[in-house]
Design a protein around this nucleic acid. Structure first.
Lengths: 153, 153
DNA sequence: ATTGACTCTTAGGGCGCCTAACTGTTAGGC
DNA sequence: GCCTAACAGTTAGGCGCCCTAAGAGTCAAT
Protein backbone atom coordinates (compact mmCIF):
# COMPACT_ATOMS: atom_id res chain seq x y z
CA UNK A 1 0.00 0.00 0.00
CA UNK A 2 2.55 2.54 -0.96
CA UNK A 3 1.57 5.88 -2.37
CA UNK A 4 4.75 7.61 -3.36
CA UNK A 5 7.35 5.15 -4.65
CA UNK A 6 5.54 4.60 -7.94
CA UNK A 7 3.45 7.12 -9.80
CA UNK A 8 0.07 6.45 -8.29
CA UNK A 9 -3.13 5.90 -10.23
CA UNK A 10 -4.31 9.50 -9.99
CA UNK A 11 -1.09 10.82 -11.39
CA UNK A 12 -1.16 8.35 -14.24
CA UNK A 13 -4.73 9.29 -15.03
CA UNK A 14 -3.85 12.96 -15.00
CA UNK A 15 -0.92 12.21 -17.28
CA UNK A 16 -3.17 10.40 -19.71
CA UNK A 17 -5.75 13.17 -19.71
CA UNK A 18 -3.14 15.83 -20.22
CA UNK A 19 -1.54 13.89 -23.05
CA UNK A 20 -4.92 13.50 -24.68
CA UNK A 21 -5.59 17.21 -24.39
CA UNK A 22 -2.23 18.03 -25.92
CA UNK A 23 -2.77 15.51 -28.67
CA UNK A 24 -6.00 17.16 -29.72
CA UNK A 25 -4.48 20.59 -29.38
CA UNK A 26 -2.32 19.79 -32.34
CA UNK A 27 -5.30 20.42 -34.59
CA UNK A 28 -5.97 23.73 -32.89
CA UNK A 29 -2.39 24.78 -33.48
CA UNK A 30 -2.60 23.64 -37.06
CA UNK A 31 -5.67 25.75 -37.58
CA UNK A 32 -3.95 28.79 -36.13
CA UNK A 33 -0.96 28.21 -38.36
CA UNK A 34 -3.07 27.85 -41.46
CA UNK A 35 -3.14 31.57 -42.14
CA UNK A 36 -0.29 30.97 -44.52
CA UNK A 37 1.68 33.95 -43.43
CA UNK A 38 4.50 32.19 -41.67
CA UNK A 39 4.93 28.52 -40.80
CA UNK A 40 4.82 27.45 -37.17
CA UNK A 41 8.50 26.62 -37.15
CA UNK A 42 9.45 29.93 -38.66
CA UNK A 43 7.26 31.90 -36.31
CA UNK A 44 8.74 30.05 -33.35
CA UNK A 45 12.20 30.92 -34.53
CA UNK A 46 11.37 34.57 -35.01
CA UNK A 47 9.63 34.70 -31.65
CA UNK A 48 12.71 33.32 -29.99
CA UNK A 49 14.85 35.96 -31.67
CA UNK A 50 12.41 38.65 -30.62
CA UNK A 51 12.66 37.56 -27.00
CA UNK A 52 16.42 37.92 -27.21
CA UNK A 53 16.41 41.00 -29.38
CA UNK A 54 18.50 43.12 -27.03
CA UNK A 55 21.51 40.87 -27.03
CA UNK A 56 23.30 41.55 -30.27
CA UNK A 57 22.24 38.39 -32.00
CA UNK A 58 21.70 34.78 -31.08
CA UNK A 59 23.94 31.91 -32.07
CA UNK A 60 22.63 29.06 -34.13
CA UNK A 61 23.31 26.48 -31.45
CA UNK A 62 21.41 28.59 -28.97
CA UNK A 63 18.45 28.85 -31.30
CA UNK A 64 18.46 25.11 -31.84
CA UNK A 65 18.56 24.38 -28.13
CA UNK A 66 15.80 26.86 -27.50
CA UNK A 67 13.57 25.38 -30.15
CA UNK A 68 14.30 21.83 -29.12
CA UNK A 69 15.75 20.83 -32.49
CA UNK A 70 19.18 19.88 -33.76
CA UNK A 71 21.57 22.44 -35.14
CA UNK A 72 21.12 21.56 -38.83
CA UNK A 73 17.37 22.02 -38.49
CA UNK A 74 17.92 25.47 -37.04
CA UNK A 75 20.35 26.33 -39.82
CA UNK A 76 17.74 25.32 -42.35
CA UNK A 77 15.09 27.59 -40.85
CA UNK A 78 17.50 30.47 -40.51
CA UNK A 79 18.55 30.24 -44.13
CA UNK A 80 14.93 30.37 -45.21
CA UNK A 81 14.23 33.33 -42.98
CA UNK A 82 17.33 35.07 -44.27
CA UNK A 83 16.23 34.55 -47.85
CA UNK A 84 12.87 36.04 -46.90
CA UNK A 85 14.67 39.06 -45.48
CA UNK A 86 13.40 38.49 -41.96
CA UNK A 87 16.73 37.81 -40.23
CA UNK A 88 20.36 38.70 -40.77
CA UNK A 89 23.41 36.54 -40.15
CA UNK A 90 26.54 38.34 -39.02
CA UNK A 91 29.92 36.94 -38.13
CA UNK A 92 30.63 36.97 -34.42
CA UNK A 93 33.48 39.44 -33.91
CA UNK A 94 34.87 37.43 -31.01
CA UNK A 95 34.69 33.96 -32.59
CA UNK A 96 34.72 33.51 -36.32
CA UNK A 97 33.22 30.06 -36.06
CA UNK A 98 30.05 31.50 -34.64
CA UNK A 99 27.20 33.31 -36.31
CA UNK A 100 24.99 35.95 -34.77
CA UNK A 101 21.40 35.87 -35.97
CA UNK A 102 19.24 38.97 -35.60
CA UNK A 103 15.79 40.05 -36.63
CA UNK A 104 15.67 42.64 -39.37
CA UNK A 105 13.15 45.43 -39.22
CA UNK A 106 10.95 43.38 -41.56
CA UNK A 107 11.35 40.32 -39.37
CA UNK A 108 10.30 42.32 -36.36
CA UNK A 109 7.22 43.53 -38.16
CA UNK A 110 6.43 40.05 -39.48
CA UNK A 111 6.53 38.37 -36.09
CA UNK A 112 4.42 41.12 -34.56
CA UNK A 113 1.74 40.93 -37.19
CA UNK A 114 1.68 37.12 -37.31
CA UNK A 115 1.38 36.96 -33.55
CA UNK A 116 -1.38 39.52 -33.47
CA UNK A 117 -3.36 37.72 -36.09
CA UNK A 118 -3.04 34.34 -34.43
CA UNK A 119 -3.84 35.80 -31.04
CA UNK A 120 -6.97 37.36 -32.42
CA UNK A 121 -8.11 34.02 -33.81
CA UNK A 122 -7.36 32.31 -30.54
CA UNK A 123 -9.14 35.03 -28.61
CA UNK A 124 -12.16 34.44 -30.78
CA UNK A 125 -12.13 30.80 -29.83
CA UNK A 126 -11.62 31.53 -26.15
CA UNK A 127 -14.44 34.02 -26.29
CA UNK A 128 -16.96 31.23 -26.16
CA UNK A 129 -15.72 30.04 -22.79
CA UNK A 130 -17.38 30.99 -19.55
CA UNK A 131 -15.58 33.24 -17.11
CA UNK A 132 -14.94 30.28 -14.84
CA UNK A 133 -13.45 28.29 -17.67
CA UNK A 134 -11.20 31.15 -18.63
CA UNK A 135 -10.02 31.39 -15.05
CA UNK A 136 -9.26 27.69 -14.94
CA UNK A 137 -7.29 27.99 -18.14
CA UNK A 138 -5.41 31.05 -16.93
CA UNK A 139 -4.51 29.26 -13.71
CA UNK A 140 -3.12 26.28 -15.57
CA UNK A 141 -0.97 28.14 -18.06
CA UNK A 142 1.89 28.85 -15.65
CA UNK A 143 1.80 25.22 -14.61
CA UNK A 144 2.19 24.11 -18.21
CA UNK A 145 4.97 26.62 -18.49
CA UNK A 146 6.72 25.04 -15.53
CA UNK A 147 6.34 21.60 -17.04
CA UNK A 148 7.82 22.77 -20.30
CA UNK A 149 10.65 24.59 -18.58
CA UNK A 150 11.52 21.50 -16.58
CA UNK A 151 12.76 19.57 -19.58
CA UNK A 152 15.21 21.91 -21.15
CA UNK A 153 18.28 19.61 -20.98
CA UNK B 1 -15.41 51.74 -22.49
CA UNK B 2 -16.90 48.62 -23.93
CA UNK B 3 -16.03 45.22 -22.62
CA UNK B 4 -17.73 42.74 -24.88
CA UNK B 5 -17.98 43.91 -28.49
CA UNK B 6 -14.31 43.34 -29.29
CA UNK B 7 -12.06 40.76 -27.74
CA UNK B 8 -10.82 42.77 -24.81
CA UNK B 9 -7.22 43.07 -23.73
CA UNK B 10 -7.49 40.37 -21.10
CA UNK B 11 -8.81 37.87 -23.58
CA UNK B 12 -6.08 38.68 -26.07
CA UNK B 13 -3.47 38.33 -23.38
CA UNK B 14 -4.88 34.98 -22.35
CA UNK B 15 -4.89 33.91 -25.96
CA UNK B 16 -1.24 34.85 -26.33
CA UNK B 17 -0.25 33.07 -23.14
CA UNK B 18 -2.14 29.96 -24.12
CA UNK B 19 -0.62 29.95 -27.58
CA UNK B 20 2.80 30.31 -26.06
CA UNK B 21 2.17 27.41 -23.70
CA UNK B 22 0.98 25.22 -26.56
CA UNK B 23 3.93 26.22 -28.69
CA UNK B 24 6.37 25.10 -26.04
CA UNK B 25 4.39 21.95 -25.41
CA UNK B 26 5.42 20.76 -28.83
CA UNK B 27 8.80 19.88 -27.40
CA UNK B 28 7.19 17.99 -24.58
CA UNK B 29 5.12 16.00 -27.02
CA UNK B 30 8.18 15.37 -29.15
CA UNK B 31 10.01 14.03 -26.15
CA UNK B 32 7.16 11.72 -25.33
CA UNK B 33 7.04 10.49 -28.89
CA UNK B 34 10.75 9.85 -29.03
CA UNK B 35 10.46 6.35 -27.63
CA UNK B 36 10.53 5.15 -31.20
CA UNK B 37 7.79 2.63 -30.74
CA UNK B 38 5.08 4.35 -32.73
CA UNK B 39 4.97 7.80 -34.29
CA UNK B 40 2.62 10.40 -32.90
CA UNK B 41 0.43 10.27 -35.98
CA UNK B 42 0.20 6.51 -35.88
CA UNK B 43 -0.56 6.39 -32.20
CA UNK B 44 -3.27 9.00 -32.66
CA UNK B 45 -4.81 6.92 -35.38
CA UNK B 46 -4.71 3.75 -33.32
CA UNK B 47 -6.10 5.56 -30.31
CA UNK B 48 -9.00 6.81 -32.38
CA UNK B 49 -9.73 3.27 -33.55
CA UNK B 50 -9.50 2.02 -29.99
CA UNK B 51 -12.10 4.54 -28.87
CA UNK B 52 -14.44 3.26 -31.56
CA UNK B 53 -13.50 -0.38 -31.19
CA UNK B 54 -17.03 -1.61 -30.58
CA UNK B 55 -18.46 -0.38 -33.84
CA UNK B 56 -17.36 -2.86 -36.42
CA UNK B 57 -14.71 -0.70 -37.99
CA UNK B 58 -14.29 2.94 -38.79
CA UNK B 59 -14.38 4.44 -42.24
CA UNK B 60 -11.40 6.26 -43.67
CA UNK B 61 -13.24 9.53 -44.02
CA UNK B 62 -14.31 9.30 -40.40
CA UNK B 63 -10.75 8.71 -39.30
CA UNK B 64 -9.54 11.68 -41.31
CA UNK B 65 -12.18 13.96 -39.87
CA UNK B 66 -11.41 12.78 -36.38
CA UNK B 67 -7.69 13.36 -36.77
CA UNK B 68 -8.14 16.71 -38.44
CA UNK B 69 -6.39 15.68 -41.65
CA UNK B 70 -7.46 15.13 -45.23
CA UNK B 71 -8.55 11.73 -46.45
CA UNK B 72 -5.39 10.90 -48.40
CA UNK B 73 -3.30 11.52 -45.31
CA UNK B 74 -5.46 9.12 -43.36
CA UNK B 75 -5.17 6.52 -46.11
CA UNK B 76 -1.41 6.83 -45.95
CA UNK B 77 -1.30 6.19 -42.22
CA UNK B 78 -3.72 3.32 -42.46
CA UNK B 79 -1.69 1.62 -45.14
CA UNK B 80 1.40 1.86 -42.99
CA UNK B 81 -0.43 0.49 -39.98
CA UNK B 82 -1.84 -2.31 -42.08
CA UNK B 83 1.60 -3.25 -43.31
CA UNK B 84 2.74 -3.30 -39.69
CA UNK B 85 -0.11 -5.68 -38.89
CA UNK B 86 -1.77 -3.28 -36.47
CA UNK B 87 -5.01 -2.69 -38.35
CA UNK B 88 -7.15 -4.55 -40.85
CA UNK B 89 -9.11 -3.11 -43.76
CA UNK B 90 -12.33 -4.88 -44.63
CA UNK B 91 -14.86 -4.06 -47.28
CA UNK B 92 -18.05 -2.55 -45.94
CA UNK B 93 -20.80 -5.11 -46.62
CA UNK B 94 -23.36 -2.36 -47.10
CA UNK B 95 -21.35 -0.06 -49.36
CA UNK B 96 -18.53 -1.38 -51.48
CA UNK B 97 -17.02 2.04 -51.86
CA UNK B 98 -16.34 2.20 -48.17
CA UNK B 99 -13.65 0.57 -46.10
CA UNK B 100 -13.93 -0.49 -42.50
CA UNK B 101 -10.74 -0.15 -40.52
CA UNK B 102 -10.29 -2.15 -37.32
CA UNK B 103 -7.55 -2.73 -34.81
CA UNK B 104 -6.02 -6.18 -34.91
CA UNK B 105 -5.10 -7.94 -31.70
CA UNK B 106 -1.54 -6.73 -32.21
CA UNK B 107 -2.76 -3.21 -32.83
CA UNK B 108 -4.73 -3.29 -29.64
CA UNK B 109 -1.70 -4.44 -27.72
CA UNK B 110 0.54 -1.87 -29.40
CA UNK B 111 -1.66 1.09 -28.57
CA UNK B 112 -2.03 -0.07 -25.00
CA UNK B 113 1.64 -0.48 -24.43
CA UNK B 114 2.60 2.74 -26.20
CA UNK B 115 0.06 4.67 -24.18
CA UNK B 116 1.19 3.15 -20.94
CA UNK B 117 4.78 3.95 -21.63
CA UNK B 118 4.09 7.55 -22.59
CA UNK B 119 1.76 8.03 -19.65
CA UNK B 120 4.43 6.79 -17.30
CA UNK B 121 6.92 9.27 -18.70
CA UNK B 122 4.41 12.07 -18.43
CA UNK B 123 3.48 11.04 -14.90
CA UNK B 124 7.15 11.23 -14.01
CA UNK B 125 7.24 14.79 -15.25
CA UNK B 126 4.02 15.73 -13.49
CA UNK B 127 5.34 14.18 -10.32
CA UNK B 128 7.50 17.22 -9.69
CA UNK B 129 4.47 19.49 -9.51
CA UNK B 130 2.90 20.54 -6.23
CA UNK B 131 -0.57 19.32 -5.36
CA UNK B 132 -1.99 22.76 -6.09
CA UNK B 133 -0.38 22.82 -9.49
CA UNK B 134 -1.74 19.41 -10.30
CA UNK B 135 -5.19 20.58 -9.32
CA UNK B 136 -4.91 23.63 -11.52
CA UNK B 137 -3.85 21.45 -14.40
CA UNK B 138 -6.63 18.95 -13.80
CA UNK B 139 -9.18 21.76 -13.72
CA UNK B 140 -8.00 23.15 -17.03
CA UNK B 141 -7.95 19.91 -18.97
CA UNK B 142 -11.70 19.76 -19.58
CA UNK B 143 -11.58 23.38 -20.67
CA UNK B 144 -8.90 22.58 -23.21
CA UNK B 145 -11.04 19.67 -24.27
CA UNK B 146 -13.97 21.99 -24.85
CA UNK B 147 -11.82 24.33 -26.88
CA UNK B 148 -10.63 21.48 -29.03
CA UNK B 149 -14.10 20.09 -29.45
CA UNK B 150 -15.42 23.48 -30.51
CA UNK B 151 -13.58 23.44 -33.80
CA UNK B 152 -14.57 20.14 -35.25
CA UNK B 153 -16.33 21.51 -38.39
C1' DA C 1 -29.16 3.73 -68.52
C1' DT C 2 -26.92 7.71 -67.52
C1' DT C 3 -25.27 11.20 -64.70
C1' DG C 4 -23.68 13.19 -60.53
C1' DA C 5 -22.26 12.50 -56.02
C1' DC C 6 -19.61 9.72 -53.06
C1' DT C 7 -15.41 6.94 -50.97
C1' DC C 8 -11.15 5.86 -51.32
C1' DT C 9 -6.44 5.41 -53.58
C1' DT C 10 -2.58 7.04 -56.39
C1' DA C 11 0.70 10.47 -57.84
C1' DG C 12 3.47 14.20 -56.95
C1' DG C 13 5.16 17.89 -54.13
C1' DG C 14 6.34 20.70 -49.76
C1' DC C 15 8.08 21.23 -45.19
C1' DG C 16 10.49 20.11 -41.00
C1' DC C 17 13.13 17.00 -38.71
C1' DC C 18 17.05 13.79 -38.37
C1' DT C 19 22.11 11.67 -38.81
C1' DA C 20 26.54 11.69 -41.02
C1' DA C 21 30.07 13.94 -43.10
C1' DC C 22 32.53 18.16 -44.10
C1' DT C 23 34.83 23.02 -43.57
C1' DG C 24 36.68 26.22 -40.90
C1' DT C 25 38.17 28.11 -36.14
C1' DT C 26 39.88 27.97 -31.54
C1' DA C 27 42.67 26.49 -27.83
C1' DG C 28 45.65 23.33 -25.30
C1' DG C 29 49.97 20.37 -24.99
C1' DC C 30 54.51 19.99 -26.10
C1' DG D 1 55.27 27.61 -33.25
C1' DC D 2 52.96 23.39 -34.42
C1' DC D 3 49.53 19.71 -33.96
C1' DT D 4 45.57 17.87 -32.32
C1' DA D 5 41.13 17.79 -30.14
C1' DA D 6 37.09 20.16 -29.46
C1' DC D 7 33.81 23.12 -31.25
C1' DA D 8 30.34 26.01 -34.63
C1' DG D 9 28.05 25.79 -38.42
C1' DT D 10 26.83 24.04 -43.18
C1' DT D 11 25.92 20.55 -46.66
C1' DA D 12 24.04 16.13 -48.22
C1' DG D 13 20.83 12.67 -48.07
C1' DG D 14 16.86 10.57 -46.20
C1' DC D 15 12.32 10.01 -43.66
C1' DG D 16 7.63 11.13 -41.98
C1' DC D 17 3.42 13.60 -42.38
C1' DC D 18 0.80 16.71 -44.68
C1' DC D 19 -1.36 18.67 -48.87
C1' DT D 20 -3.84 19.13 -53.75
C1' DA D 21 -5.14 17.04 -58.06
C1' DA D 22 -6.50 13.38 -60.57
C1' DG D 23 -8.16 8.61 -61.05
C1' DA D 24 -11.13 4.15 -60.28
C1' DG D 25 -14.99 2.16 -58.63
C1' DT D 26 -19.74 2.39 -56.54
C1' DC D 27 -24.25 4.23 -55.38
C1' DA D 28 -28.53 6.57 -56.18
C1' DA D 29 -31.76 9.30 -58.45
C1' DT D 30 -33.59 10.50 -62.64
Amino acid sequence: MNEKPLPDAGLLALAGDFREALRHSIYLVRRLDADGELSAAQLSTLKMLLDAADQGGVRVGEIARNLGVKVPSATEQIIKLERAGLVRRDADPADSRAVRVKLTREGHAAVDSANERRNAVMAGILGSLTAAEREALAAAIPVIGRINASLQP
